[in-house]
């Protein structure tokens, strides 16, 4: 018989593991949708989400930037791999986000306790 305290710790670990992947799983549900990725150097890249990985690196297709004159080199590419660490915000399509599901996932630790 596992003491209550240990159970709690084990539960905590399991939930941590799932919550670690929360946004990775979330972004995977948005594959195929158009998003706007705002980088820490203020570049705004619009594109269709092609894929995402566990570091929240993002791959976009059909990319365009809001100010192409300022970023001439963006004219060369139509697909882009964006390193997760340089992302400030991602503007999401509001109709493709199930906010109830997100909230449930974020609260999960409470319900398990």
């Amino acid at each position: 018989m596992v003491p209550t305290y240990c159970k709690f710790v084990i539960f905590n670990k399991i939930v941590r593991l799932t919550s670690k992947m929360l946004f990775y799983s979330f972004f995977k549900t948005l594959v195929g949708h158009e998003i706007i990725v705002e980088l820490k150097n203020d570049i705004c890249v619009t594109g269709r989400l092609h894929s995402v990985d566990q570091f929240l690196n993002i791959k976009l297709i059909e990319v365009c930037v809001s100010d192409p004159e300022k970023y001439p080199y963006m004219n060369y590419i139509s697909e882009s791999f964006i390193r997760g660490s340089v992302v400030r915000y991602v503007q999401l399509p509001v109709n493709s986000v199930d906010s109830q599901l997100l909230q449930d996932a974020a609260r999960k630790e409470i319900t398990i306790r």
Binding site: N41, N75, Y76, I77, S78, E79, R83, V86
Partner: peptide, 21 residues
Amino acid sequence: RGENVVLLGEIDALKEADQMF
């Protein structure tokens, strides 16, 4: 080194043409 990369993309042969610049 990876941390210095902001973004990268395959050069679109059609887009790279020198005529743009």
